[in-house]
Amino acid sequence: MIESISQSSAYETPINLTQKMMALTIHIIREVALCKSALDKQLGTNKFQELVHEAFSIMGSFFAFDFFPYVGYIIDKTTGLHGRLEKTFRDLDLLYQKVIDDHLHIERHVKLGS
């Protein structure tokens, strides 16, 4: 990240620190928490970034259900926000399940001596 910022400053181009920090965060998550090789096999780097950006976008959205519990659900369904929420978290659940399965698979091989 530092190298990227220094290269951009050498050319006097504007630097989007939000984008740089998000990329660094995603890189750290991929490397440490989610086992990069498992992610790359299952999804690819771009799909994971898209999921993270979509989740952040949805978390910052206005949900009518939060303010109008009886009719807000209908409004959220009509605007499509509820569908986006369901799809994104379904995709994230699948990702997490694949990562867990990969970790369990690796542990079984280590215990068996394979």
Rank of each mutant, 00 (worst) to 15 (best):
A10Y: 03
A10E: 11
I15E: 04
N16E: 04
L17D: 01
L17W: 05
T18A: 09
T18V: 09
Q19H: 01
Q19N: 01
K20I: 10
M22G: 00
A23Y: 03
A23C: 04
A23D: 13
L24Y: 09
T25Y: 13
I26H: 09
I28Y: 11
R30A: 13
V32D: 15
A33W: 13
A33S: 15
A33I: 14
C35F: 12
C35N: 14
S37P: 05
S37E: 15
L39N: 03
L39S: 01
K41F: 08
Q42Y: 09
Q42S: 09
L43G: 03
L43T: 02
L43W: 03
L43N: 04
G44S: 02
G44R: 02
K47E: 10
Q49G: 06
Q49D: 12
E50D: 14
L51W: 02
V52H: 06
H53D: 14
H53I: 10
A55Y: 02
A55W: 01
F56N: 11
F56G: 07
M59V: 06
M59C: 08
G60N: 15
F62S: 11
A64F: 15
D66W: 05
D66F: 07
F67I: 10
F67G: 03
F68C: 08
F68Q: 05
P69Y: 05
Y70E: 15
Y70D: 15
V71E: 08
I74D: 01
I74Y: 03
G80M: 03
R84G: 02
R84S: 04
L85G: 01
E86C: 14
E86T: 15
E86F: 14
K87M: 07
K87R: 12
K87N: 10
F89K: 01
F89G: 01
R90G: 08
R90E: 11
L92N: 01
L92I: 05
D93W: 07
